[in-house]
Simulated assay, not measured.
Amino acid sequence: MREGEGQVARPEFRFAPVILAGGSGTRFWPRSRRSRAKQVLALDGERTMIQQTVDRLLPVAATEDIWVVTNDLLKEAILDQLPNVLREHILSEPAARNTAPACALAAFLLEKTQPDTVIGIFPSDHVVKDTARFAEIVRAGVALAASGEKIVVLGVPATKPETGYGYIEYGRSSDSVHGVEVHRVKRFTEKPHKALAEAFVASGNYAWNSGMFLWSVKTLTNAIREHSPGIAARMEEIGAAYGTPEFARVFAEIYPLCENISIDYAVLEPRSAKGEASSEIYCLPGDFCWNDLGCWSALHEHVADCGPEDLAKKNVFDKTNQPCVDIDSEGNYVYAPGKAVALVGVSDLVVVETEDALLITTRERSQDVGKVVAELKQVGREDLV
């Protein structure tokens, strides 16, 4: 289902997905740049990352209830790519302030206009293969979030000791909603070292933090007021101006004063510190074939679409590469649009060519590509970032 097509089987509660689209995607350089970050790129097909995000939300949300928080550099591209999302619901941050202020912004604006709403927070640059299961889990999460002051997180089954993800420790299943198991959350741990990540996976009661959350407007605004009163005070000012001629000015002046902090650190970790019984944080299984596409090696894994035993052997080429010749080569990712590509005796490389840049790294080091952007800024090559 794509934006503008018919929508079916929405939750019985008003549901407003908030798509976070303000990142710069530096680890996907040189394709991703400030003005065309990865969320507005089609990395694995014809639809861009943000279009795919909207597509999988349409079975559970009305287009007019979708919100996007982005930045000035990406706003026009997003307006072009999402023509059916209300223009006034595509908000451009005056300054990047991480996910807590972005989530709070949507919550405080909805508190003024549609207070009886469940908010869903969704990153704009993830991929989900099982979209039917995704919709099923989101419907269950909306129902749970609407049933009281509950915070719902979607936890992806941790299948390997990935050190780049946050982890959720959960307890025994306490209930079910719409046939979906519900677990109480014990604690959150951000990006553990390898040995700790291995212990988490071995324990069987940890999930990756997908960055997808559901809560009522009241729950989120109250949590911000409790745990981040500085952000709350500024959002009260912005919310009070919403719908008035003063909104643009107040938004531009006040928003940059917010603390630069993630929603995990601002709300989830201090709330989980209350203890499993009183924190009211619940985890639903994100078993819908999720990938956060954090770097080129993750894209290789996603596009290769094979088991781990075959991944190291599979070469992945852009669909426009013709012919593709590989001789004694395996596990490479190559993006060089419209060119013939020949690989001879090389393994585990990432090669990405654009009109003005060429990246050559290994799959193992692809997490470090963001450092290239930092170096280019340092030497004054802003034209390349």
Rank of each mutant, 00 (worst) to 15 (best):
Y165H: 15
L299D: 06
F288M: 02
T189M: 12
M1E: 08
N332C: 14
T163V: 15
E364P: 04
I263R: 01
A9E: 14
E136Q: 13
T63N: 07
R31N: 01
Y170A: 00
V325F: 15
E330G: 14
E3R: 07
R36C: 10
I238C: 03
R234Q: 14
E88Q: 11
A145N: 07
T113V: 13
Q114I: 09
A199C: 09
T189R: 08
G286W: 02
R97G: 12
E364D: 12
Q114D: 15
G370M: 03
D310R: 14
R47W: 11
P308A: 02
R225M: 14
A42G: 12
D318M: 01
D383Q: 07
V185L: 08
A61D: 02
F251T: 10
N84T: 11
I254F: 09
D305L: 08
R33C: 06
W296S: 04
V351Q: 02
G286H: 00
V351F: 13
D287T: 02
I121L: 07
R184G: 06
A336M: 10
R381Q: 13
L220T: 03
T113K: 13
V250M: 04
G294T: 05
E169G: 08
A106K: 03
S278K: 15
L79S: 14
Q39N: 14
V334D: 04
K186Y: 08
L74P: 03
I261T: 12
K314A: 10
V379L: 13
L359V: 12
T113P: 04
A96Y: 15
E64G: 12
S228L: 11
S262F: 05
M49A: 09
N332V: 01
V40H: 00
R10W: 03
P115F: 04
S366K: 05
I281M: 00
P192E: 00
G331I: 01
V372M: 06
V346R: 00
T362I: 03
V40K: 02
A132W: 06
H302F: 13
R234P: 03
L257G: 08
I66M: 08
K314S: 04
T53E: 01
